[in-house]
Design a protein around this nucleic acid. Structure first.
Lengths: 269, 269
DNA sequence: GGCTTTTTGGCCGGTTTCAGTCAATAGTTT
DNA sequence: AAACTATTGACTGAAACCGGCCAAAAAGCC
């Protein structure tokens, strides 16, 4: 009975992400003290974290689940603006292929709610888009790389052979004058298969990627048609890209932040 | 500057699921009052929800993302015990294929941390297992069915043709004397492909599934070797299953709940 | 440069929550 | 049946949090 109640509480907390003490009392119909003790025990078990007034899902669920998203710190603002701009290149009804990575994840975020067909091998992107009925989602299978949550390998390549899309949005580990690089051979092979499946390739990369040379060469610059970058890219780099025949798009950093303005927030209540 | 700070706060809250006011103050280095105002504005925007002592990610992120997991209410305790028992049938090093569904999700939960190779077409299961390095994860691609988060269709079947596993854990919509049923044709076709890829089929189903007949017949009972159910299955149903040559396992409802006991919790600090 | 508007930080009264204690109840063992 | 333990519910002082207020600082405008 006791364990059943605690499981119920745990489920409730995990489902809602956060549950107020008050809610939990209402849910199981016991006293506040008992709930407190339950939370104490569950916290000791490590599955939840207590807060003033309730409890939230613990490190186990939260730190492990979106583990791939955690090191998305570097140049996050730039990536966001790049994502927004890249999404503006997509028209409703288009079929797009989204590579894995933090920059392409921002593209996906900007595509939420749009009526497009999205193909991806990225678990975080799939998770983001799966519940939206406006967006058709096709998943590329394969061996899932734990660190980043992308599906790679022969199975992924096999899936890609059966698919044709209009635009591929691809990330990169590094961009040099002679081409694009990425860190992992398995990843590069899969990305090459992606390129074969797409009519048009759009590379998305923030300024930190320029001049970086990662382990494996993915392709030359002539293979890509568009490159979306942030404002922090040096003029020399820009010229080099344009000389290679790539259409360079610079995403403005001051994209309208669609958040409620403070006065608006205060007045609207 | 203001918007940048709010985005930072938002990112922090979304990344951690919950952030205490105190933490947020420490993160951006402004006064408590300012943070309060920021949270107020963000809550008006609907992206977060305030709580006593902090803020959690709002309905937008939480209700849409794990939308598939939300209606897992019916017979959840039974499904959990079934999941635990089913996982005990797996040996370390095995290769298992997990179908989509709430019952198989419980199997996956019970497999967390085990050194097994898991193949699945279920997004929730993939999300659960992806970060665990002990578990090799292979994803089956395909068209993602929004309601349940499983990949189906020709692509999924194509992936499955290249894969061989030892044990398939499969869910069902309904179990009749003449066989197993499920609701969706696309789903049934994919599950049939799964069965072809597996040496051994284990059906997991709670007692509510018995006598239910869903739209499409998946297969006869002779195609499955094991069936794991909860204690709520009637003797007649049990006999019928066993007569069909299926090994019936009844998962005990009082499986050791591995949670810290209250006294243990209080003493261990 | 001066003025207005916006944003920020500190403070206070009121409310809620927390941790700990204790008695009562329910369940178990002898 | 009696004794014992585990669990629960109520109470209390202390601490934390909230909302609102006002003054100072910063930013924008003329």
């Amino acid at each position: 009975m006791l364990e059943t109640r605690r499981q119920t509480l745990l489920d409730l907390i995990q489902k809602r992400g956060f549950a107020a003490l008050e809610d939990l009392v209402a849910a199981v119909g016991v006293s506040e003290s008992t709930i407190r003790r339950d939370l104490e025990a569950l916290e000791q078990g490590g599955v939840i974290r207590r807060t003033h007034g309730g409890a939230v899902v613990g490190a186990e669920t939260r730190e492990l689940m979106p583990a791939f998203e955690d090191r998305a710190d570097t140049a996050i603002a730039e990536k966001r603006s790049i994502g927004r701009f890249a999404a503006s290149l997509v028209q409703d009804g288009d079929t797009v292929l989204l590579d894995g990575g933090t920059t392409t994840l921002e593209v996906a975020k900007a595509l939420v709610g749009r009526t497009v067909q999205v193909v991806t091998n990225s678990l975080p992107i799939a998770q983001l888009l799966a519940p939206h009925k406006d967006t058709d989602l096709i998943l590329i299978g394969g061996f899932v790389y734990p660190r980043t949550g992308v599906a790679l390998g022969p199975i992924a390549i096999g899936c890609l052979e059966k698919i044709r899309v209009h635009t591929l949005f691809m990330g990169a580990g590094g961009i040099m004058a002679d081409g694009i690089y990425n860190s992992n051979l398995l990843l590069v092979e899969t990305e090459q298969a992606m390129m074969k499946s797409a009519h048009q390739v759009v590379l998305v990369a923030d300024h930190t990627k320029f001049g970086k040379q990662a382990l494996t060469k993915l392709c030359g610059l002539e293979k890509i048609q568009h490159l979306v970058v942030d404002e922090g890219v040096s003029p020399e780099d820009r010229r080099q890209i344009e000389n290679a025949g790539v259409l360079l798009h610079v995403a403005p950093s001051d994209v309208k932040p669609r958040l409620v303005q403070p006065e608006e927030a205060r007045n609207s209540q």
